[in-house]
Design a protein around this nucleic acid. Structure first.
Length: 710
RNA sequence: GCGCCCGUAGCUCAGCUGGAUAGAGCGACUGACUACGAAUCAGUAGGUCGGGAGUUCGAAUCUCUCCGGGCGCACCA
């Protein structure tokens, strides 16, 4: 039997059939057949307003068209019938028993894009301070998207770009060398002392960075001028490398980076490669890119206007008038010969697509339980894995950087790399801000102006924000208190593990439940909630399902095997090619809801002369909620594809929640273990087994573990 | 000034390529534990989808305009 995802498969089948019917009947080639999931099961499982849409071109009443189309649909494999409803909708009812067989068998279709080599860049925190809630959103979005691409069968490289030679690192170095008057030897000593005391270097830098930022503006005008000069002199030394200042920067930034990886690992987030800006500079990536940019004419030398003496490029969407100087052009090479950020980013992205003709050196940096994370270096070790050269890339970068991102894409397109430009996704998301109340609770001074705002932007420079590790610690403490109260029979280690799983589940779900372009106004009350639309709610549904199987002394696998026997008296079924036993349906003569849901006689066990179809359990007023659960379980691949094509993990988060909600509802309405009809009991257990399987799969894709108990 | 995002129930948010009575969670109020453990479930109240105009058989969804909020538009990264 060929694998397929029930809903997706039936949708495709109906669409192509409708396309053929429209062509044959009306000579209308219609590429996109609108298909939707109706708002209520009474309208069937799939529906199309295509007749409404065609009314004008065909000059016929929509209802007439719908009836004509329905007449040609009878007997379509996998469907139980079609009917015209409302103003001219065509509603399709699928063969429930047959669909349930497929779902139970765990059939899933291959999503589009299988085998593609993708590269996801996320996290990319400046290594000069502790990670905060904003970085958590980035990393959780990125990591989840990586899991989605992998679930779709893609080969994914996970990268975390490290700007170790930028102003932000320069600022902590200035603070260390000039505010604290310390040396390279002191830096070594500090790291050792912090290690012994069990303190975090990234927390230390959080405060130092904020102090230094203030220091730049807190003196007399001429003092501030000197401090600013010091800042840029330091930055210059970092870029050059091979000096004491850069050695301090390297030492501190690497220690902070290590902390970031540890923080993210608490959330189950891992990386394959850490490309650093220092290597992009020292290995002269830019020189190679510059040649290509000049040759393709993307960059031109400006001889007039405010950008005179610079190499510039035209911005995307800019209207250029012949013979006039484009004052709005983006400067890529400054008049002093140095390269801007966008320039370096173009070089880096040429490398990502394997178009630069240069590569990093590689050395191992961080060890995960099952693989190594590599970091860039000038002279690497052999052998090493190769990164870059991807077919599709995703950059998880906040929405404020959409302009520079668009510039990079524009440059690639201008160089003739249009296929790559099309597969370059700026995976943008809005920031995480704090509600004024949250800021006050944390002890920050909040101005009257800020108090009136809906939210206040987090700022590392100001030291304003919620640190990632603090939030995680707080979440674990809260779940631990709850777990200790509930799981009195379990030992310390077990309770801690469960608490961590729940805490991380709550945090990851919280960051994923919002769509990317909505600003998250962070508040501890919401983030620390474990009820309602939360990760723990979904995890709890899993635990409940598991408890049923434990009490019944069976397993989901055993139940599903039993279920297959129950529903497959002839051993066939499913969505195999030639399995059409449908009776033609004229389109207006059936109404499933009116059939009695249950016969008086007991169900004959599978394998007897009268095929023991399970329709009776899937239809009728009392069973619509069960069928809805099966139907949702059938949507896994559909949701996965939707998430990938729209770069929106929130759809999967919503799907998992709705699945859990329907399961909890089912759990209350139908008591499984006390069910007396053995066949129905098997059916109910199979329902739980399917829900359990789909819940665990969805949670895994979201990077959320399923605890054994809670 | 130009560009992008947002404005949906008291609060926080969904609403897929325009489609059938606008949904969820939280909060409020009513109920359900002799347990497949209530981190749960059922029910009630609550909405001029920011305002206006247009396109359409049909608009929360598309276009225009106005109002309100946010973020970008460096020879910073």
């Amino acid at each position: 039997m060929r694998p397929n995802d029930v809903y997706l498969e039936l949708q495709k089948r109906l669409a192509s059939h409708l396309r053929a019917v429209l062509l044959a009947k009306y000579d209308l080639p219609l590429e996109n057949i609108p298909l939707e999931i109706p708002p209520d099961l009474k309208f069937g499982e799939l529906s199309t307003p295509v007749a409404l849409q065609l009314a004008r071109t065909l000059r016929k009443a929509p209802k007439i068209i719908a009836q004509e189309i329905v007449a040609s649909l009878a007997g379509l494999d996998g469907f139980a019938g079609f009917e015209v409803a409302g103003a001219g909708y065509i509603n399709a009812r699928i063969d429930r028993a047959e669909a349930a067989q497929s779902v139970a068998a765990g059939e899933a279709s291959e999503p589009a894009g299988k085998g593609l080599h993708s590269l996801v860049e996320h996290t990319s925190i400046n290594p000069n301070k502790a990670a905060h809630v904003g970085h958590l959103r980035n990393a959780i979005l990125g990591d989840t998207f990586v899991r989605l691409l992998q679930a779709a069968g893609q080969k994914v490289d996970v990268q975390n770009y490290i700007d170790n030679t930028g102003v932000q690192v320069a600022d902590v170095v200035v603070g260390f060398l000039h505010l604290e008057n310390k040396s390279l030897a002191d830096a070594h000593q500090l790291l050792e002392e912090l290690r012994l005391r069990g303190e975090r270097i990234d927390y230390y830098c959080w405060d130092l960075y904020a102090r230094t930022s203030q220091w730049y503006a807190s003196g007399a005008p001429e003092e501030n001028e000197a401090r600013k000069k010091l800042r840029y002199a330091t930055l210059h030394e970092l870029e050059l490398g091979n000096n004491e200042t850069s050695a301090v920067a390297e030492l501190i930034s690497t220690a902070v980076l290590r902390r970031h990886l540890e923080t993210m690992l608490r959330l189950g987030i891992e990386y394959d490669f850490l490309p650093r800006e220092s290597e992009i500079l020292h290995l002269k990536f830019w020189d190679a890119a510059f040649e290509q940019l000049k040759q393709t004419g993307v960059l031109y030398f400006e001889t007039e206007g405010k950008n005179k003496g610079c190499w510039v490029m035209t911005r995307p969407g800019a209207e250029i008038t012949e013979g006039e100087t484009n004052e709005d052009a983006k400067v890529i090479v400054r008049s002093n010969g140095t390269v801007t950020y966008v320039g370096k980013d173009i070089a880096y992205h040429l490398w990502k697509f394997g178009l630069l003709g240069k590569d990093f050196g590689y050395k191992p940096f961080f060890t995960y339980p099952d693989h190594l994370c590599w970091i860039s270096t000038e002279h690497g070790v052999e052998p090493h894995p190769h990164f870059g050269g991807a077919q599709a890339i995703y950059n998880v970068i906040d929405a404020r950087q959409s302009d520079p991102q668009a510039n990079v894409i524009q440059a690639l397109r201008g160089m003739g790399y249009t296929a790559q430009a099309d597969r370059y996704t700026h995976f943008s998301y809005e920031m995480v801000a704090l509600t004024p109340r949250c800021a006050v609770d944390l002890g920050y001074d909040v101005s009257a102006e800020d108090l009136a705002r809906p939210y206040i932007e987090v700022s590392g420079r100001k030291g304003f924000g919620v640190k990632a590790d603090d939030l995680i610690d707080k979440l674990i403490a809260a779940t631990r208190a709850e777990t200790d109260a509930r799981q009195t029979g379990r030992d310390e280690a077990e309770r801690q593990r469960i608490s961590e799983q729940i805490a991380i589940g709550a945090l990851r779900y919280f960051m994923l439940k919002f769509t990317r372009n909505s600003v998250i106004a962070f508040d501890f009350k919401d983030a620390l909630s474990f009820e309602g639309e939360t990760g723990p709610y979904i995890q709890y549904a899993v635990v409940r399902a598991r408890n049923i199987f434990r009490k019944a002394a069976t397993t989901p696998e055993a139940v599903l095997a039993e279920f297959a026997a129950l529903t497959l008296p002839q051993g066939g079924g499913g969505f195999g090619p030639s399995h059409s036993t449908q009776t033609p349906v004229s389109g207006h003569d059936f109404s499933r809801a009116e059939q009695p849901p249950k016969e008086e006689g007991a169900l004959a066990p599978g394998g007897t002369s009268s095929p023991a179809r399970i329709d009776r359990y899937l239809e009728g007023d009392g069973n619509e909620d069960i069928w809805a659960l099966w139907l949702r379980a059938a949507r896994r691949t559909m949701v996965l594809e939707q998430c990938i094509t729209t770069s929106e993990p929130a759809y999967l988060a919503k799907h998992a929640f709705q699945l859990a909600q329907e399961f909890n509802n089912f759990y209350h309405r139908h008591h499984i273990l006390t069910e007396e009809d053995p066949a129905r009991k098997t059916f109910l257990l199979a329902t739980a087994a399917v829900a359990l399987r789909e819940l665990i799969t969805a949670l895994t894709w979201l990077g959320i573990e399923s605890p054994e108990a809670m």
